[in-house]
Structures are given as C-alpha cells and as structure tokens.
C-alpha cells in the first residue's frame, strides 16, 4: 500500500504544498483552513500555490485524456519545488498518485508526473503516516460515524488513520455504520449522468448512517460529503455532515455542510 513506499523520515519542517481541490476551494473553504491548521500543528510549513485549479479527474474519468493531461499540467507546474503535496481528498490525491504516471506515460512530463505522484499524499494519511501525528488536541462532544470514501480506501489504503486520529478527539464517540466501505453513489460525473441509480445508492447509505445512531457524519472527500449531506437533508435527517479535517481541527463555529451560517452577514 501507499503508506510503506514513502517511509523515509520527513525533513524537520517540510514545505508542504496544499492542493485545495476545486470542490473545497469553491464550496467549502473551511476544509482548506482546517488542513492548513492540522499541517502547521504537525510542524509543516504550508504554501498554497495560487495557480492550482483541479486535478483533471472529471475529464480523465470521462475518457478525455487530452483535456485531463492539460488540466494535470497546471498541477505539475503549480507544485514544483515542494517537499510534499497534500490534498484534503483521497480522490484527488489518488488521481495524482495513481493515475498521473499513467496519464503522462510516454509524454515529456512522465518523469515529473512520477516524481509528483511519489510526494503527493491525502491529508489524513500524510499526518498519520508521514508526520507520525498520533493525536490532536481538540474537544468535540458528539456521537459520530465515518464513511470510507472509495478512492482513499481502495487506492490509498486509508482506513485506520482517520479512525486513529478521531479516537483522540475528546468527547467524540465513534460508532461504525453498516457497510461503511460501500460507495455513497457520488462517483463524480456519475451522479449527474445516472441520477436515479446514484439516488438509490445514496439512499441506502443514508439509511445506514441514520441506523448507526450517529449525530455527526464524517468522510475525507467533499464530493461524497455533499452527496450524503444533500440526501440526508432531503430526507429531513438531523445528522450533521462535516469533513474529517474540520472535526480534527476543531472548527465547531463553522456550520455543517448544507446548513446556513449562524449570523448571515459577515
């Protein structure tokens, strides 16, 4: 699995480029700030290259390799000269780690893509496996459950790391839902190409979440979170939905996904 390949000790204060991901950038900036806090608390120096956009996955998974490469080049360019690249998303980190080398196979940027892949990490696994973070200092009293997003789980082997760190959150009681490792039905463009099927899958997921008795749902990918939050809210559920980084960073003042801000004008 991913975690063993890069077990070289990190530099004292590694320079980490935060790949915010387009969804977090546009829909949920608080996840980006949570990532910055967690990385800095772990002893990293964080930079956010402003020339970043998207990892190219929508094009790649739609069969459009040319455009996928075009978008991926922006990532290659934006993240040069950093010790690590970290994304608060298993899906986008998986895209760079697992798929960029294939996407650029035989292209001039092949070596650069491989180098980028080898220093790119999903946030939580980076904290646990590279920075050896074992606990966080925060208090969040809630009964919570964690959904394993597919790419993080199956491409990057992220399973224990978030549970371990969440276990150190004071007051947080972690309960496992049934079928936590089953897809939520988001699937990127899948959810708009096959909305009915996606709905059937996310409905089962919502039932499992509700049946777990949790009042807080967490996952490591905003796409999945928006999908599950949207379904739970449509069902009238009161389960709050947040990114795992937001919980680990103790961002309680932020409204949960899909909830209005407490004071409207800021």
């Amino acid at each position: 699995m991913a975690s063993e390949e890069h077990s070289v000790a990190p530099p004292k204060m590694p320079r980490v480029g935060l790949f915010v991901t387009c969804l977090v950038d546009l829909f949920r900036p608080s996840i980006g700030f949570a990532a910055v806090k967690l990385l800095e608390d772990a002893g990293c120096s964080v930079v956010v290259p402003s020339a970043q956009t998207c990892c190219g996955q929508p094009a790649y998974n739609s069969g459009d390799r040319k455009d996928a490469r075009g978008v991926a080049r922006t990532v290659l360019r934006a993240f040069r000269g950093l010790d690590y690249v970290v994304a608060p998303s298993g899906s986008c980190a998986g895209m760079i780690r697992e798929h960029y080398p294939k996407l650029f196979a035989g292209e001039p940027e092949e070596a650069e893509a491989e180098a980028l892949a080898s220093r790119t990490w999903e946030l939580i696994s980076f904290l646990a496996d590279v920075m050896k973070v074992e606990r966080v200092e925060c208090h969040w009293p809630a009964r919570a459950t964690y959904h394993d997003s597919c790419s993080g789980l199956r491409e990057l082997g992220i399973r224990q790391q978030p549970r371990q760190l969440l276990g150190s959150v004071e007051g947080l009681e972690l309960v496992e839902m049934a079928e936590a490792e089953v897809c939520c039905g988001f699937g990127g463009t899948f959810c708009v190409k096959y909305p009915e099927i996606s709905d059937s899958i996310v409905s089962k997921k919502a039932e499992n979440i509700e049946n777990s008795g949790a009042e807080l749902l967490m996952a490591g990918d905003l796409g999945c979170l928006m999908n599950m939050a949207g379904k739970l809210q449509r069902r009238g559920s009161r389960v709050e939905v947040r990114h795992v980084a937001e919980v680990l960073a103790g961002q309680q003042e932020e409204p949960a996904i899909g909830e209005p801000a407490k004071q409207v004008a800021k």
Partner: peptide, 13 residues
C-alpha cells in the same frame, strides 16, 4: 433527489 449544499460565496483561494 437531494439538496445541493450552497457555497459560502468566496473561494478558499
């Protein structure tokens, strides 16, 4: 089939 979470209005960047 589901609600769509609204963005807060300004990007992270």
């Amino acid at each position: 089939h589901r609600d769509f979470p609204a963005p807060s209005g300004r990007s992270f960047q």
